[in-house]
Design a protein around this nucleic acid. Structure first.
Lengths: 153, 153
DNA sequence: GCTTGACTTTGAGCACACTCTAAGTTTTAT
DNA sequence: ATAAAACTTAGAGTGTGCTCAAAGTCAAGC
């Protein structure tokens, strides 16, 4: 098992660029990364775990300013104050995420509806091309003509 | 039923600012909004419906550049090309969203785990304050000490 | 000893999506 | 007639989160 990574390896491992890794360190999202004798950074398992948790927060939309506060609290250690504020922050973010999730599910449902509508429109457009039927110029694409039985000749 | 809205009313109705409404029109996300005699915009039900759909795309992370393409295709009418490209765009976004949803559910689960951990840490910290027990300085907060039976005196 | 490549730092630059400012017009109320 | 409120435009400015550039250091291989 590899126990420590160069900045390039770390970047590859977590899907960031080396620039972003240094940026996160510069702003204090990750504390000073231990260096080798030649001043090159060496990322260890614990750094990578913290980083990956940060990335979960980031990809779920937590702003950097809040991640910074969380990181600061973590550095302060496990005092009652630090723990309860971190807990409050994560609880708040969780509530936001749960709301976002529901909203996203609704949007997905609407999108599936639209997709079905487009499929139906495509069917009608193909029928039109074949049979010279006319169809309404539905610019809003909100009210597709429902499927109908094939025209009897 | 109100049939048309001023820009302020429209902004309030959809949760944007008047600035953003004009900005969306300027860049072409919404086509030229009909004007009153005094050149003031009047938003109608169909404008609002389109706007609300755009906002669903926006809040689920579709970039403006893509919304612009979608808007352009819509303006082109319901040709086979327009319909199928719009369908493809929404299908792609739906797939992205479904993946995001799963990822978000995983993160929510992890957050619930962290929250439980913090609750347990708080319990132990309170016990410590009361009984002068010591606890590990768990900076990573990844391995909380499991609950244990109360110290027998 | 010189080149190559991976790293270092500081600071500037960029893309995105707004957000606001300034100056002007139009309608309504006094 | 004048003031106030709501709108108009073009264009400049802002915040967030990177992303890159320039100049330098260091170790390894030829």
């Amino acid at each position: 098992m590899i126990t420590s990574l160069t900045i390039q390896q770390a970047a590859k491992a977590c899907g960031l660029t080396v620039h972003t890794l240094r940026y996160y360190e510069r702003i204090g999202l990750i504390g000073p990364v231990p260096r080798q004798a030649n001043r090159h950074r060496l990322y260890h398992a614990e750094d990578m775990q913290w980083l990956e948790f940060l990335l979960k927060l980031r990809t779920t939309g937590l702003p950097i300013a809040q991640m910074l506060r969380y990181a600061e609290l973590r550095r302060l250690g496990n005092s009652i104050e630090s723990v309860s504020e971190r807990k409050a922050m994560l609880a708040q973010h969780t509530r936001t995420l749960e709301a976002t999730l529901i909203n996203m599910q609704q949007t997905i449902a609407i999108l599936h509806g639209k997709l079905a509508m487009y499929t139906e429109m495509e069917r009608q457009l193909n029928a039109t091309t074949a049979t010279r039927e006319e169809y309404s110029d539905d610019r809003t694409a909100e009210h597709p003509t429902p499927p109908h039985p094939p025209t009897r000749r």
